[in-house]
Amino acid sequence: MSEARSWGRQRALCHWATPFAWLVLLLALTLGMEALEGGFRLLEPDSREIIYTRADFLVLLGRHLLMVGTAGILAIGLGVGAAIAVTRPGGRDFLPLVSQLASMGQTFPPVAVLALAVPVLGFGTVPVIVALLLYGLLPIVRNTLVGIEGIDAGVREAARGMGMTGGQILRQVELPLAAPVILAGIRTSVTINIATAAIGATVGASNLGDPIISGIVNGNTAYVVQGAVLIGLLALTVDSLFAKLMPTRG
């Protein structure tokens, strides 16, 4: 009994081991980048400053997460909502339009979105969030559409034939069956945006992109590497978390 429980706990621990390992590494570097000063000196033997100190890495990480998170939540709400709306009988007419808009969104470079957003929304965090939101919308909309449209026609017919209402079919059949595909879309969207958010530093939204931009401007490779490594670790942590959230039932 207690053996079984401890075995179960061990399995749970194993299950979360990968994201946990990435998270530990991310936090360790965020809090203790100075420890690697010796290593970075090899990259920049001539610079006076080796470790980026203009802002605390932890603060930058928090702001980075905040931007990606806000954009992500908005993109999920909007993307899933739009895809659901255009797969209802009343919204079918807009299905081609929405799926086209969504694919155009991805071909639009995020830098261009930023360039267009700044004159309207000003400098700072808001235009970055808008750009990330628009950019992250496509994979979510597309995957939600694919997930819902991909449901077996027989299942749909049976659901209607048994007398389920539209809302019941959506909540009890369509969303649960489409969930793995939708989740995969959210994973792509968020992971891409973690990297994309870095360019927000160019319009004055400070995040983990700061050291990279500042490194480029000042010709300090060590700064660039510090920012890039932290962003990479954050992306890996979040991505492996999503990997564990994916249902595995065959």
Binding site: D152, G154, A158, A159, G161
Partner: peptide
């Protein structure tokens, strides 16, 4: 109406989840 009428189809349409 549909809840009063049994309906069975060739593909069964069982909910896989």
């Amino acid at each position: 109406l549909r809840r009063r009428i049994g309906y069975a189809i060739q593909s069964t349409g069982l909910f896989p989840h």
